[in-house]
Design a protein around this nucleic acid. Sequence first.
DNA 1: CTAATTGATAACTCATAGGTATTAATACTT
DNA 2: AAGTATTAATACCTATGAGTTATCAATTAG
Lengths: 297, 297
Amino acid sequence: MSYQLELRHIHYFLAVAEDLHFRKAAERLYISQPGLSRQIKQMEEDLGILLFERHNRKVELTKAGTYLKRELSIYVKQLDDTFNHAHLLHQGKKGQLKLGYVGSAMQQIIPNLLLQSKKENPDIVFNLKEMDNQKQIDGLLNFDVDLGFVRLERVPNNIEIKPVLKDTFCLVLPKNHPIDTLNFKKLSQFKDDSFILFDPEYSKSYYEKVIQIFEDAGFTPSVSHLTIHSSSIYKLVENNFGISIVPKSLTLDTKEKVKFIELDMIKQRTDLSIVWNKMNRNPILTDVLNLVKHLKI
Amino acid sequence: MSYQLELRHIHYFLAVAEDLHFRKAAERLYISQPGLSRQIKQMEEDLGILLFERHNRKVELTKAGTYLKRELSIYVKQLDDTFNHAHLLHQGKKGQLKLGYVGSAMQQIIPNLLLQSKKENPDIVFNLKEMDNQKQIDGLLNFDVDLGFVRLERVPNNIEIKPVLKDTFCLVLPKNHPIDTLNFKKLSQFKDDSFILFDPEYSKSYYEKVIQIFEDAGFTPSVSHLTIHSSSIYKLVENNFGISIVPKSLTLDTKEKVKFIELDMIKQRTDLSIVWNKMNRNPILTDVLNLVKHLKI
DNA sequence: CTAATTGATAACTCATAGGTATTAATACTT
DNA sequence: AAGTATTAATACCTATGAGTTATCAATTAG
């Protein structure tokens, strides 16, 4: 089972598989087209597998070629990660973890995690990037992200999910709004207000959950603004453009002039969950997963 | 992030990492020692990572080298699997699945699985091997096995486990034994019999569970024989060397002259479980997992 | 019917993987 | 202490094959 095959062949194959065009791929690889053709042919002979179907004027992947494109592109990425990790070990670091997170996780859980991790393991390099839920899932699937913090209910098959923070919702009202904690009875008191909500594009399932809150209260809200930043929501509410509803963890540390009413009587909760890819071989991931699971919020 | 590095370097590195001896590794690789030394050096320069510490008369792996040995040997194996799978696709097959199983799974669940799978997907190649529990776990960890059938309670972290068959226990008695289904009352009736049991080396947790059955009945059995084959047990029981206790699924289709008493009143059950490695990228595995989970026994 | 575009083929060249011979450094032996 | 054995590294050589240029064959577009 020992091939003559080299990483070079794999890189060349992936280039052709992406472009489906020998000349273009050759240009991109800075080699000549005949050289590329020969290497691909050699790879096919080595493996005993036809990778491309050469038609008159177009190149197509075979079944086996399609499979190999998918697998090998992951393979080279993982190999790259492995060498990067080895590089960090060489420098005396313990490793690196690429974190993705929705903004609201930055309020508490991420800073806590970083502090505690720095304490227990100062040699872990963290790589933080704020991303929406879907971007994180994509990132996990192709190993650009090791660990994500999302507000999602369902995730693809290979992704693991575990809630770390169960959150109630809070109404966000301008300071001068007639209703406050004292005279608040039920949600339908707000059926004539217009609402500022998080953009469903950011998280469809989160948006649907919020809408369900209003459905349960017997009315459909008029939504006047959609945004993806809580600070924008607060600014808009403060200036009487409408009212809003947000996870409780987002109500901390606002300097805006708004007031909050916690809705602990409704059944909806929004989970902040950690997500990761089962296939991820980053040894740091296991450590940090344990840390997060035992993190006291 | 594009290296000059080739698979050749990785293979050479693994050889040296295993032998910790350049000359021996070179011999094994059928190349000269200086050639090998140079390739390793080139790899170290390429990666910017020192892989080995060359001491006076011995070679040692660095931290990064140790990590790379572990990871890269898995990569090489996965790459090999990937090409094998592609090869099967090329031949019009759907893929291959390497199954490990304890003997008792062959009684029912494995034949069922194979039959149903052949029906739904005639192009899957199955690769069967009877192995003890621990061998299967080892095989899963280094990807020699895709799916195992074990009698275990606990498995390592990266291994997933799911029970597929809950089994009661049965006493195995010689035909001429004074006790039978009619006059059997409780287990302690057998406290003076000597027992033939499955060797604890085969599965420690299974053995302990069986011993617990007797502890619960208030006595410690005298164990006269240990074996790993149910047929040996039946032969020995038939010839009055003692009595035994086995999972119910093993009582089928015996031509031996023994009788069985089902122990459905005791609390112990033995689970036959499927086990697999989370990191396994064999696309067939997902299909077969679904099949097994919905298999009617 | 010509021009353009595709991948494959042929013949050449030069970079380098791997070879031989040797050195340097150290560790056993006596 | 001197001699022998064992290790990996160094220096230099060579021959395989990756990559080149030029060209072909087959097709399509205008």
